[in-house]
Structures are given as C-alpha cells and as structure tokens.
C-alpha cells in the first residue's frame, strides 16, 4: 500500500517543530508500524536527509520505549497494544497518517518524536519501591499472599512506564502511572510499612514535575497498552486520604534531580 505521512519534525528542544509530509510506498500489510517508519528512514537516508528520530527497543510491547500519537491517539487505533505492536493491516492504501510525539509539559521534546520521560523515573525515586536490602529478607514462602491480591497487584504491576496515559489525558496527568505503582506495592503485605509515605511522596513529586491533576476523563485507561484500570486511581485516592490525615510523611525523600 502507499501512504501519506505527516510527521512531527523538531531538531531540538529549543527550536520550533512542525509537520513534514512524506510518502511511504509499497508497504506490506504485514509490516509493523515501526517497520514502516524504518523503511521511510532508509529512503530518507539514501536521499541524504536525516531520518525521523523515534524511540523503540524491544518491539514487542513490553519495554515501554516506543510511543507515538497516531492520528491523535496515543499508540494508535489498536486497543491494549503499544505502538510497536501495531501492524499496517489496520491501514489501507491512500491513508493519511499524522504522527506526533507525546505532548505534555512534563515531557519536553528531545528530537522529532522523542521526548524526555525522566520525570517518571524521578517519581519512583522518591519512594515508588519497597525497601528490601539485598540479603536481609525472609524465606519467600514465609508470607502467604491471597491469590486474588497477588493477581490484582500483578494487574497494576504490568505498567510499562511508556507515558501514554499522560499523553492521552487532557490535563497531562500522570495519575494512572502513579496509581498503578502505589496499588501494586500497597496490595502486598511487604508494601505495608512504607505505604503511607509512599503515596504522599509520589503524589508530591508528580505535582512538582508539572503533571496536571486528574479530573476523571478516563482517557488514560483507554490508551493504556496494558489496559490498566482506573479503579487503581480510586484506590490511590483512598490511600492518599488516609495518609493525609496523618499529615507529613515520616520520611521525606528529596527529589533525586
């Protein structure tokens, strides 16, 4: 098939970007979306132009590197899949496709379709973990965990940290990302001692990174490649309420910069 692409090109964080039109010719139905971009990039290189920068690594929907807004939708038209899992059989000859980076104040553009998602790492660094020093731990079967809790924790833990939730949210909120982390760890007995501080510190860091607040649009859930449920946001809000009653966290971890 032949396609017309309108791709966001931006040389660096500080210069203005814009859409550039490209033609993608002779694309096979079986190619993935990113392979289609590879083919376009090969042609650009052969023509002496700079290829389109986009992020990717595993190409199987698990590393969270890739992420494009395709015709206005983060990760494109396919439900529950990352950009790298999208195949060209979803398109037909002559289609026009608009391709943009994640748009959010907290995710500045690095180049073309690549953004800086370091804010998500910094949120985890202020307490999105269980402090279990290497070696200082009991036998794995010493604590029994109800299967349904383990399963629910796993649902939350399947987050790949791609940032699509932020890109989809009209407020560019990172609430689903934070809620998934808080829920994953808060559902497990091991996560209880730090539960209160964790939610307070993570939410504070999220706010200071410039993410917007959650006003229940649920766009995040719709674009999440792992279909993480917004029920976890309700869970976060409950935790946050309980934790706030006790005021300041026992231990503040400074933003890791």
């Amino acid at each position: 098939m032949n396609l017309v692409l309108h791709v966001w090109r931006q040389a660096s964080p500080t210069v203005k970007g814009g859409f550039v039109r490209y033609e993608a010719k002779d694309i096979s139905d079986h190619a993935s979306f990113l392979e289609m971009l590879d083919i376009v990039n090969e042609q650009l290189t052969e023509n002496g132009e700079e290829p389109i920068a986009f992020e990717h690594d595993c190409r199987e929907g698990i590393c969270g590197s890739c992420g494009l807004v395709i015709n206005g939708v983060p990760h494109g038209p396919q439900h529950g899949a990352a950009t790298c899992q999208l195949h060209m059989r979803h398109y037909k000859d002559g289609d026009q496709i608009w391709i943009e980076p994640w748009r959010a104040k907290a995710f500045p553009v690095v180049k073309d379709l690549v953004v800086d998602r370091g804010a998500l790492d910094r949120i985890i660094q202020v307490g999105g973990y269980i402090s279990a020093r290497t070696g200082a731990v009991p036998d794995a079967n010493a604590t029994l965990i109800r299967k349904e809790h383990a399963e629910l924790a796993m649902d939350a833990a399947s987050c790949i940290g791609c940032g699509a939730c932020v890109a989809a949210c009209p407020n560019a909120s990172a609430m689903l990302f934070v809620a998934a982390k808080v829920s994953h760890l808060g559902l497990l007995p091991q996560g209880q001692p730090e539960r209160r501080d964790r939610v307070l510190n993570l939410v504070a860091q999220m706010d200071s990174e410039g993410f917007g607040s959650c006003t229940n649009h649920a766009e995040c859930e719709a674009s999440c490649p792992k279909q993480i449920s917004i029920d976890f946001i309700a869970r976060l809000n409950r935790d946050l309420f309980v934790a706030s009653l006790a005021q300041t966290p026992e231990r503040m971890v400074a933003g890791a910069g």
Binding site: A132, K147, Q190, G191
Partner: peptide
C-alpha cells in the same frame, strides 16, 4: 534460592496458589 526470597521481598508479584504459596 536467595534470589526468589529477595524478589518476593521487593514486591515481585509471582504467580501464587490459592493457599497463598508461590
């Protein structure tokens, strides 16, 4: 064996049986 202990303590949600064991 230490690895499994370590990972569980960190909150790795390994598959479990109905009784709560790994």
């Amino acid at each position: 064996n230490n690895i499994i202990d370590q990972c569980v303590a960190q909150g790795v949600p390994f598959a479990r049986e109905y009784g709560g064991l790994l």
